[in-house]
Computed example of a mutant assay.
Amino acid sequence: MSLPYRQIGEGTRGPTRGGIVCVSDHASNQVPGGIDLRIDPALMNEHIGVDIGVEGIAEEMAANHGIPAYLATVSRLVVDLHREEDHPGVVPQTSDGHVIHGNMGVDVEERLSSIYRPYHEAMAKWLDKRDPSLIISLHSFTPKLATSDEPRPWEVAFLYNQDDRAARIAIQFFAEEGFTVGDNEPYSGRQLNATMNRHAEPFGRPYLATEIRQDLIATAQGQKHWARLLAKVASRVAQELG
């Protein structure tokens, strides 16, 4: 099995300490060989299989804005890297009304040992080498769930658990720019913040747990636009936090 992550945007001199970095747990819709999820393959390109748009944004920030990235290379339907190991949905059996037949009765421990733990162990080392001033935890959300009639009006949102230092600055910035900004929306970081709870909050590392609405970043043009916006606000946040 190939590595469950990839690292992009490093300079020829290797890691730079103290800068801004990006991590994205749901950047891929790939399913490793030997795993059959037994769902319609078209669903892998929808929001249940991948955070639409985030890979392109991360690649753009790495290439043109000096923000290296650590990206998952395995779909969230194989194992959800943004859940705790003991979370009931770490290997999801359903997602937005779809049954993931291939995950019924699966050996969860095997998925954790072969994919989940190597991913997070390597991320810990990657972050330790960089000692970042700010982590962008990059996600995207569907404008409306299939299982809900409630629209999600926010264009961008920032989540947090205990540490809201960076989120507060970013929320204010985007609100001043005229965006509809979510504060711990479309779900609360106090319930779902697994990766930053593990890699940021215990170390006092400021982070922007960012959610961007998927219809805004489904194209390369949209991804470039939001990469510029996010790089701009991240730089401002890092400066204000000192």
Rank of each mutant, 00 (worst) to 15 (best):
S2H: 13
Y5Q: 00
R13H: 14
T16Y: 09
S24R: 00
N29C: 12
Q30T: 11
P32V: 08
G34N: 11
L43C: 06
M44R: 11
N45L: 11
I48H: 02
D51C: 07
E55V: 05
E59D: 14
E60K: 06
N64R: 13
N64A: 15
P68D: 03
Y70S: 01
L71K: 02
V74E: 05
V74Q: 03
V74L: 06
V78I: 06
E84L: 10
E85T: 05
V91T: 09
G97W: 11
G102E: 11
E110G: 11
S113Y: 12
S114Y: 09
S114W: 07
A122T: 12
M123D: 00
L127I: 13
D128M: 12
S133D: 10
I136F: 02
L138Y: 00
K144C: 14
A146R: 15
R152H: 13
W154E: 10
D164G: 04
R168P: 03
I169C: 05
I169D: 04
A170K: 03
A175W: 08
E176W: 11
F179P: 00
F179Q: 05
D183R: 11
N184K: 11
E185F: 06
S188Y: 07
R190G: 08
T195I: 07
M196L: 13
A200M: 07
E201L: 07
F203A: 07
R205P: 00
E211C: 01
I212Y: 01
D215C: 02
T219G: 05
K224Q: 15
K224F: 08
H225A: 13
W226E: 04
L229G: 00
L230D: 02
G242E: 14
